[in-house]
């Protein structure tokens, strides 16, 4: 069985025909061809496929595609500005070492975004709760948590990145 659905995909209205048994993850990756959303387990255990539906972080591998009808879907591809400027959460993950192999990163960033959209000054316990369903094997989570805190204000200073750049007359260290 298939049906026609209409939804907002990263800010754009989209109408298409979906099979009833498709998951949202299948729709995003296989039908729409957006591969930033990852499949780590296919059973809602790892969070690599996290996307935002109407403001809430969901595991797209457990969410039926047809259910997206009339809703708003944001994937990792919808975060950066049109000119390529990274979203502040993406920037923080880059600057604070929140990314190693990167496979969990899109899902992790989406969980963080859903949290900070609702509570921009989230403290550590809320951060841990929000990403508890996103597994990471590389980082031990420490720098991921630092990255999110840098945006939520849980961290007193800005990024600790120090790199001399050619156009910067005052190299920092």
């Amino acid at each position: 069985m298939s049906r026609d659905i209409t939804f907002t995909f990263n800010g754009n209205l989209l109408t298409l025909t979906v099979e009833d048994h498709w998951t949202l993850l299948h729709l995003i990756r296989e039908e729409l061809g957006y591969t930033g959303t990852k499949e780590g387990c296919g059973s809602g255990e790892c969070g690599a496929c996290t996307v935002i539906v109407d403001g809430a972080a969901v595991n797209s591998c457990l969410y039926l595609a047809a259910e997206i009808n009339g809703r708003s879907l944001v994937t990792i591809e919808g975060l950066a500005a049109a000119d390529g400027t990274l979203h502040p959460i993406q920037r923080a993950f880059v600057d604070h070492g929140g990314i190693q192999c990167g496979f969990c990163s899109p899902g992790m960033i989406m969980s963080a975004k859903a949290l900070l959209d609702e509570n921009s000054h989230a403290a550590e316990p809320e951060i841990l709760e929000a990403i508890a369903g996103n597994l990471c094997r590389c980082t031990g989570y420490v720098q991921i948590i630092e990255s999110i805190k840098a945006v939520s204000g849980g961290e007193p200073e800005g990024p600790r990145v120090v790199a001399w750049r050619g156009d910067d007359p005052h190299p920092r260290s």
Partner: peptide
């Protein structure tokens, strides 16, 4: 220096291909 990983932006935006 604490320089961000070269490929981190690709991974943060979902552009990195596995």
């Amino acid at each position: 220096k604490r320089i961000p990983k070269i490929d981190a932006a690709d991974k943060a935006t979902g552009r990195a291909r596995y």
